[in-house]
Nucleic acid binder design. Structure first.
Lengths: 216, 216
DNA sequence: AAGTGTGAACAAGTTCACAGCC
DNA sequence: GGCTGTGAACTTGTTCACACTT
């Protein structure tokens, strides 16, 4: 791995991985960048360039072995092991996220659930008791987790993230509608449906305005 | 509005809007690109350039009026009206998303909920009956909606999106872990936590590998 | 004096196009 | 012959730096 790899490239690899998994399930064993590009709506050159940051996985004149490529992507992305995940905030969203069946199949084990609400603490969710967020930091010292999913309210978010960070969690998925500060050693990604809707309404508005302009 | 505006710029505007809303709540009336940049962890030049695509909203020597800028962003993003949203798929995630209190306050009204499961159809969710997805297309003809949120299973996703598109929905928020095809007249954004986790594990893995290398 | 708005310089990311290999 | 891997060309996006305005 020569130089620094652009973050956009890293973000595309899981998409390649997902599609290749489907293609493997369909029984295909070899695929060209052209064909994969058609599946993904991406140019073949981009796929080849992206992969070339990590090695030479293809065969000229033939394309890529689907199994080989899946294996390489697994290795590159760290999907050849299991990751321990804690979910903090067991409200409606937290419950839905924690029960999402898609995590386990991809190597993400939800090992503990936390909440601050006494009515929720101690209740059974997915066969495991919800723990008190007050014990999160000490729990993490005994039982490490690499990833934290934060589904608390906006006002609690920064505090919870600080605790996770102090507890050694190094990647955070933030479902909270707030910007959050983390040290540069911690990865963070944000899921905020309102921001998505608001950028889409920009386009909706333009379309509606254009249509009205044509009508006069 | 002169030339074509880059999509990345559009995606940043809602973030500016959110932070400016908070700043207004804190009682500030004027802010410079420098100060706003510090709040957002963005360069001041980027903020000025982004805004300059749409007009000249600042005052030299002073900065931007927070209220004025909020108003302009509202106008640009189409947040000066309400938008009608339907949610399709009332499982755990759909229920959590449909009940999320953050939509209404930002002008997004969830006007109907749909599911295919007979045990769910007709049940009361947030004070409204869940409707049969079979009636979605005809419902949309009578009662238009601009936005669809899709929280069904992966295998149903494309069908549901096709129905929404035929029914005149022009923006889709896809919570399904699948790539989905839409005509170029339809906006789509994808929320897939697994893809986010998988790009973060890339970095986690590197850090762990580096640490192990140092230890020898 | 302070801070915007913006062309120009620079950096990052994408696509082209073709040499090289299967 | 077909398709990869990759420098080079190009395109897109970001930052600089300063003329201009209040």
């Amino acid at each position: 791995m020569p130089l620094e790899i652009p973050e956009v490239v890293i973000d595309r690899l899981p998409v390649y991985f997902r599609t290749l998994t489907r293609i493997a399930d369909e029984g295909r064993t070899v695929i060209s960048s052209q064909e994969l590009g058609e599946e993904l709506d991406v140019t073949p050159a981009q796929i080849r360039k992206d992969l070339s940051y990590f090695g030479r996985f293809g065969k000229q004149g033939r394309g890529y072995s689907v199994q080989r490529l899946l294996g390489e992507l697994k290795d590159i992305l760290g999907l050849d092991r299991r990751w321990r995940v804690v979910v903090v905030g067991i409200g409606r969203l937290g419950r839905a996220v924690a029960s999402y069946p898609g995590f386990e199949g991809q190597g993400f084990d939800i090992v503990a659930r936390y909440d601050a609400n006494p009515e929720v603490i101690g209740t059974n969710v997915d066969g495991d008791l919800v723990r008190d967020v007050a014990t999160l930091e000490s729990d993490l010292r005994e039982n490490h987790a690499e990833i934290g999913i934060v589904t608390v309210t906006a006002s609690q978010a920064q505090d919870v993230v600080n605790v996770l960070t102090r507890g050694g969690v190094r990647a955070i998925l933030n479902y909270t509608p707030t910007g959050i500060q983390v040290p540069p050693t911690v990865e963070i990604k944000h899921i905020n449906p309102v921001l998505f809707l608001q950028s889409m309404t920009y386009h909706l508005k333009r379309r509606i305005d254009e249509r009205d302009a044509l009508r006069g």
